[in-house]
Design a protein around this nucleic acid. Sequence first.
DNA 1: GGCGGATTGTTATGTTGTATCATCGCCGGC
DNA 2: GCCGGCGATGATACAACATAACAATCCGCC
Lengths: 159, 159
Amino acid sequence: MTDRHIDVHKAHDHEACIDTALARARALCDDRDVQLTPIREKVLAIVWKSHKPVGAYQVLDELARTHKAARPPTVYRALDFLIAEGLIHKIESLNAYLGCGEAGVAHTSQFLICRVCGTTEEIVDPKLDHALDAAARRARFTVERKMVEIAGLCGRCAG
Amino acid sequence: MTDRHIDVHKAHDHEACIDTALARARALCDDRDVQLTPIREKVLAIVWKSHKPVGAYQVLDELARTHKAARPPTVYRALDFLIAEGLIHKIESLNAYLGCGEAGVAHTSQFLICRVCGTTEEIVDPKLDHALDAAARRARFTVERKMVEIAGLCGRCAG
DNA sequence: GGCGGATTGTTATGTTGTATCATCGCCGGC
DNA sequence: GCCGGCGATGATACAACATAACAATCCGCC
Ligand SMILES: [Zn+2]
Ligand SMILES: [Zn+2]
Ligand SMILES: [Zn+2]
Ligand SMILES: [Zn+2]
């Protein structure tokens, strides 16, 4: 919890990000009695290789290096599992996938996507979340899934 | 301006929606000295056939009925033009396109997507918009494009 | 042993979106 | 009159993203 809200745009010990994410995933899957199989864990690790969203076929290429039987369904099944368990998110505007920095905590998808460096930061903003709910309520709309993707320039790239 | 904020979930004179949208598009393109060519206008009309997002290949099928030369680039070029002019929006979570109900007025993409009937309502909620800006500002992020897509049940389908 | 559910293997196909170069029509300069 | 540039479209091919369908395997349990 302490080191989970780092600034992903700055240099940081990213191995620690990966280790934390994997440890957290293992713990959550254990609690829930679902299987974080080797394939799923490997896919999760691949997605976590950076703070940039990764395409499914990029994951496939990586996975195939150590797992020759890998095919598109292999990857998509793993991604579907990880999404269902809240361990990764799909970035809809990029058709790509990103490790969730808040796994295990209820939250909605809110992302800041830098168009220059690709770095995508997940934010958890209760006020924004509340504004989404309020907007839906005004329209008598029952919310099931909320997607917020803001594209632009991160602090580094805006200079 | 008076009849532009109808309830798209209720029965309504949809021909009027289409006519208004097309007239508005013609006026805006005229103002801007860009060409709303027959292909582009036809694609806009196809997208406006309903208040449900339409896929590019669905547009292609429709277009090809009256324009045999139509191919994927034909459609994507028209869609790109219409998006650039703010006449339609892309619904990222569906890879589909929807007529803009606020063409010519500065606004961000905010949508309520009913998973049952498919009807997608564009909302313009300044508070939500401000919440997006505030969230980005807190993260020192320069906003270029804001995407909000809320999926769930519309008032009709929630019953 | 054999049943059933979860996972993975395997092949094929469907869907969405681009790259590239050719062609056409128009308009303004020479 | 003709040429050159430009915006739009034609045409072919391909890249990128995603799923269908069925077989095989593994493993705990009766
Ligand atoms: Zn990191
Ligand atoms: Zn998350
Ligand atoms: Zn209508
Ligand atoms: Zn709009």
